[in-house]
Amino acid sequence: MFEIIKKTLQTGCQTTKYPQTPDFAPQGFRGKPEFIAEKCTYCADCVKVCPAGVIWLSEKSGEKTLSLSCCGCIFCGRCEEVCKPGAIKLTQEYELSAKKKEDLISSIGRKL
């Protein structure tokens, strides 16, 4: 009995203070994928391998646009693996909630 009380007191409060103080994801956590616009060659390798199909390439009047929607992304990191120039990286950001689906889309474009 005394041992249990002693252990409880030694453990202390373990509850996170999350919304008041920011909580950073641990090393290796796979969060929001981000493009690096300068490195991208628009080869569309990531479009082919994405299991959820949330990356797409569109072409309009000579301008190529690569878009990614976090809505539906399973954060597997496959796009990061296949990207040869290293133009896509998974960050540790996890606060992605949005009221509209359009807010979750990020895209880069280049005139060719």
Binding site: T16, Y18, P19, D23, A25, C70, C71, G72, C73, I74, F75, C76, Y94, E95, L96, S97, A98, K99, K100, K101, L104
Partner: peptide
Amino acid sequence: VYIPGCPPRPQAVIF
């Protein structure tokens, strides 16, 4: 509201 993540962290749900 849409909460993306597979699965989302508990902190993400609070957010």
